[in-house]
Amino acid sequence: MSDAMLAETITIKGDNGDEIEAYLARPLDTTPRGGVLVIHHMPGYDEGSKEIVRRFAVNGYNAIAPNLFYRVAPGASPDDAAAAARAQGGVPDSQVVGDANGAIEHLKSLESSNGKVGVIGYCSGGRHTFLVACSLKVDAAVDCYGAFVTRTPDPAWGMTAMTPLLELAPNLSSPLLGLFGADDQYPSPAETAELEAELKRHGKTTEFHTFEGAGHSFFSVERPSYRSEAAAEGWQKVFEFYGRHLAS
C-alpha cells in the first residue's frame, strides 16, 4: 500500500453557501477511509493547524481544516487574520456550524470516503467541536481543552459572544473523547467533570482524560505550554478512538 499523500488549499462551500478556504490532506490510495474535520484554535488557520491535518492523512485519514477567519481577512497571514477576527468580536457559532457542515460534506464527497467523519478541535476549537458534534451528525468527536462549554465567562471580562453550550448536551451525536490538562483553569478539571457528568446523565458515551503536569494547549509543539508526554499519550488516544469509530 502506498504512503503517498496530497495536501493542498482548496475552496469549499461554507455557511450560507459562502466560498471559503480550507486545507485538505488525503492519502492518494483510494481504499475507503474515514475523514477528520480539524477545527483550528483562536490563533487561526496557522502552520500548526495545517500540520495536524497532514498528521491525520499520514495516519490514513482524509482530513480538512476550514479557515474560519477567511471571510474577515481573505489571503491575510494567519496571525493578521486572527487579529482581524478578534477585533470583530470573533466568529458567530452559527457560522462555525455552517462552515463545519461544508467541510464535512466535502470529506464525504471524496472518492475514498467511507462515509464516516470525526471532528477534533483545540482551545476555542475544542468548544467548537462540542458545538459541531451537538449540531451535526458526526461519528466521533475529540475536544482538546475547549473552555466555556459548561460555564459562562466572568461578566467582568465582557466576553458576551462566549455562551455556554451545556444545554446542547442531549443532542451530542457521537462518542466524545475529551483531552484536558490538570493544571488548566479554562477549562478547569471541575468544569470538565461537570461536562462528563451531564453527558453521562443523558446516556452519552464519553472518554475523558486529564493529564497531570499539563495545562492548556499541551499539544502545541511551537508553544511553551507543550508537554511532550501528555501530547504523545493524547495522540495515541485520538488514534485509538478514531480507529474504533471511523473504521469502515
Binding site: 483562536m42 491575510a76 477585533a87 492548556h216 508553544r223
Partner: peptide, 23 residues
Amino acid sequence: HPTHARYTHTLNIDFLNPAEGPG
C-alpha cells in the same frame, strides 16, 4: 495567547488601519 512570545499568555497590542486591510 501570543503568536510568538515565549509565554502562554501575554498582553497583546495591535496597531491597525483596517481600511488598508488586515496586513
